[in-house]
Nucleic acid binder design. Sequence first.
RNA 1: GCUGCUGUAGCUCAGUCGGUAGAGCACUUCCUUGGUAAGGAAGAGGUCAUGGGUUCAAGUCCCAUCAGCAGCUCCA
Length: 729
Amino acid sequence: MLQISLPDGTIVSHPEDATPLSVAESIGSRLAKAVIAAKVGDKIVDATFPLRNFSGPTPIPLRLLTDRDPEALDVLRHSCAHVMARAVMRLYPDVSLAFGPTINNGYYYDFFLPHKLSEEDFPRIEQEMAAIIQKGEPFEQFSLPREDAMALCQDMNQLLKVEHIETGLSSHESLGFYRQGEFVDLCRGPHIPDAGRIKAFKLMSVAGSHWKGEVNGPHLQRLYGTAWFQPKDMQAYLEQLEEAKKRDHRVIGKKLGLFQITPDVGQGMCLWMPKGARIRSLLEDFLRREMLKRGYEPVYSPHLGRVELYETSGHFPYYRDSQFPPLFVHDAGALVDAWCRRLNEEEGLNAAQESHFLQAAEILGFDSAHYRKVLSKEEKLASLNEWQRQHERFLVKPMNCPHHAQIFKAQPRSYRNLPLRLFEFGTVYRYEQTGELNGMLRVRGLTQDDAHIFCTSDQVEQEFRSTIDLTRFVLESVGLEDYRVQLSLRDPKSDKYVGSEENWQKAEAALRKVLEESGLNYTSAEGEAAFYGPKADFMVRDCIGRQWQLGTVQLDYNLPERFQLEYTGADNKPHRPVMIHRAPFGSMERFVGMLTEHFAGAFPMWLAPEQIRICPLSEKTNDYAMELERRFTEAGFRVTTDLRGAKVQAKIRDAQLELIPYMAVVGPREAETETIALRDRIEGEVGTKPVAEILAMLQEEVSTRRIRQTATRSAPQAEEPLQTTSHEY
RNA sequence: GCUGCUGUAGCUCAGUCGGUAGAGCACUUCCUUGGUAAGGAAGAGGUCAUGGGUUCAAGUCCCAUCAGCAGCUCCA
């Protein structure tokens, strides 16, 4: 007999051939019908899993999963991926299956398939899937020894699976398959009992992908779908997608005139329109004031730096491909640069090519006397490198840290003056791959709210604490209250990290201690640290449940070393400082883009580019309206007056659509009594009040940075995203 | 960078079989002078992303380039 413990603590005995399904049957027939899968220990298994195969503690911890459990939804989706693959195989010849895991809210399956799938194919595929679901055949698991499994995949002409068994699964003795009707797939499972459990599904999109993520590997087509136990859940999900689409910062940004990216300026280079720039400058002013209060000192640095600066920091040529190419002052600069790179390549240069380079360079003014004297490749490279050092090359600044390190280094530093906190809204340029660019969220020119803190290792804890405090304050000031911190630590087994063991231990302990004390929700991720130090990233959830990585705090033991930074300690000896990089917003572009989506363009009063729109009833009250505009402007408000000869209804409609927080409607009655009929964008008419009272009320809303509304309506909250689950081996 | 899709007025989009360009909104002017989400009329606005090609004829078909979108790969 097997001893099984149920979630309520009871322990029951079942025969040796017991399965979760048979356990469920012993509890009740309705439960048996509802069982989708089960959790045994930490592992999710089929409802028909023989419990005696469980290798773990006794009694066996068993939890039955029904359509109410998120884990079951994951199982359902993977089964739906099988159904989809089956439908695709029925409809198109020569399909090779790759992988078909579940993802947040759905699943995908990668196919190698000569036919180019498009959305036009979806109805046919969905129809075929519906037929398979209608038939409701069971998913049957079986295992084969390695050689037989290979032979089976060969027989089915599933060559990607064969390759995977040979390479990725080389250590597996026995391999699991699932059969559903004529469809057999190498799969670890688990699956739902039968296809009839899928009550709602939809194909979402098709896109390209690469076999095992190798850019040079076979090109696959990835078909995305979603599946649910209840049609109404899918409905809610689709509505949420609609809601997210309506919030797209690229659409809202264009409509409200916040920012623009035009081909004439260049990909990934955004133009901040007056209203977007307003929001940005309000955020910058706000952060600048906070930083000044906290002992930061503003600095400025140029947009260019000598290539040698970044060679010292280690960023060039390491990141060369994602930087804009160097600027050469000498005509022959680019040529000599290309020449060096050719020489460095394995094939090198043949005599004819080298002679061409030499001739061309000479035409461009290169003095070849020394080069012609040397013979070996190393000597030639040394000669060219020496020439490059003598002729300035600049890089468009890809990051601010080297500049700030130079500011630290520019004068002798004493421990008495640490920590030194240097901040700059520093604009940097990175040559991101074209396919990575995404509105304001990923651009090629961006401004970081960057600061570097130079401190002693004893000060790390205190400085980390204060950057965490600052980041929290900043996020909460714009109404982002739902966030967690990911603490990225080193992998203790790896040796890729710079800095002493002692420093790392001290730093990691300090970060952990601060996070513990802060009461913040945080998770640690081992092995995720940068090679130069541990870091803490803020993962922020917006009002429709999407997660964004925003602020970051990073410890750095590398740059102080590379730049030979020193301060004099109390012992009158030189010491190396620790550098902390931090950016509460991340970048202004990304942050404002994210806020635009979070607020769906309806910025709170303190950030709204236009706070009040004055709507005179007719031209007869224009004078009073202008007078009001002056008073509001003097009081520090951002206000405009709608002097068009339109009806007040039209003026209000336009102001509403522009998401302006308040409208001041004024006619002869208001002009007479020095009052305003105030309209609130959210609440509608507020009533008629004296001007002074309204000024005070609105000023209070600004100074407290009140957030009155984030979602235009209560959007469904996305469920906590599950880890992308692989059902593959 | 890779795969696929897309590019028509400031915006959102129609444009049939290849036969010489259309709507709504926005804009300008005029009329209207009003009480909380669209008053009326007229006008202006386009080398159909760019460059080639096929054709008697190209917004429409083909190729290249540029840009955008989705995904992959990447992100100091």
